[in-house]
């Protein structure tokens, strides 16, 4: 379980998060939707301290961290319970696929190399890259790189995986393979928080939709509630623009 309480974040004068309260249950797939600039990515990055929020609390599992005075050790502890998949993959360019996945286990968590190799190869098999162990990021396509990124995240066996627009940098043909892998990960019962613009993914896979605008959570609920019967005007407005207007049912 992961919970955020009253999270504030400002970049100079620009207030990006204005008191976010959010709770994501264990094993749940939560999707954060919203227009650009609404603070989705910032919220995600605050969860593993890539941005330090100005105020608020983070509860992850049984540990509780205050953003205001988080010590370096606490930050590291939180980071070791989370994993992130980035929009532009951010694989380690100086390592091949297998080493990329092993790095967090061997250097970060001090796993013995043999065990780390076993876990890493299982993770790579899971994302369908059995034959790409020795490929360097430069030799992989975008979709393959992102799948290595996902393997790197699941190998760590984190409490929650954060996906920051994982398909936005991919060309449309490659989006499918990444979404398929994410769907498989979701089926395994790993907690996921996903920022995405893939509405079909949100509708089909998510159990929890969070709609954000202007640094606030405007509305949250199950996909059914949000997509078929949104309560807030802003949500309706947003969904109207991005969803085709179905006026019939099959």
């Amino acid at each position: 379980m992961i919970e955020l309480r009253n999270v504030h974040k400002a970049f100079g004068q620009n207030e990006v998060l204005k008191g976010i309260n959010l709770k994501v249950n264990k094993g749940e797939v939560a999707v954060i939707l919203g227009p650009s600039g609404s603070g989705k990515t910032t919220l995600l990055r605050c969860i593993n301290f890539l941005e330090t929020a100005d105020d608020g609390e983070l509860i992850i599992g049984d540990s509780k961290v205050n953003f205001r005075n988080a010590a370096r050790k606490e930050i590291l502890a939180v980071r070791r319970r989370t994993a992130m998949v980035f929009q532009n993959y951010n694989l380690f360019n100086n390592m091949n696929a297998l080493e990329n996945v092993m790095e967090g286990l061997v250097t970060g968590r001090k796993f013995p190399i043999e065990k780390a190799r076993e876990i890493a190869s299982q993770a790579l098999d899971k994302v369908g890259l059995k034959d790409k162990y020795n490929a360097y990021p430069l030799q992989l396509s975008g979709g393959q790189q992102q799948r290595v990124g996902i393997a790197r995240a699941i190998a760590l066996n984190p409490d929650v995986i954060l996906f920051d627009e994982p398909t936005s940098a991919l060309d449309p043909e490659l989006v499918g393979e990444v979404l398929a892998v994410m769907q498989a990960v979701a089926k395994e019962g790993i907690t996921m928080i996903v920022v995405t613009h893939e509405m079909s993914f949100a509708m089909d896979i998510a159990q929890h939709i969070i709609f954000m605008d202007g640094g606030n959570i405007v509305e949250e609920g199950t996909p059914k509630e949000i997509f078929t019967n949104p309560k807030e005007n802003r949500t309706k407005q947003f969904l109207e623009r991005i969803l085709p207007r179905w006026n019939y049912t099959i």
Binding site: N48, F49, L50, L76, R79, R80, T82, A83, M84, F86, N88, N90, L91, F92, N93, E103, G104, T107, G108, R109, R152, L156
Partner: peptide
Amino acid sequence: KGQYEACYSVGLT
């Protein structure tokens, strides 16, 4: 910056 973030995200100091 992404390389640093990737390192931090997998729990490296």
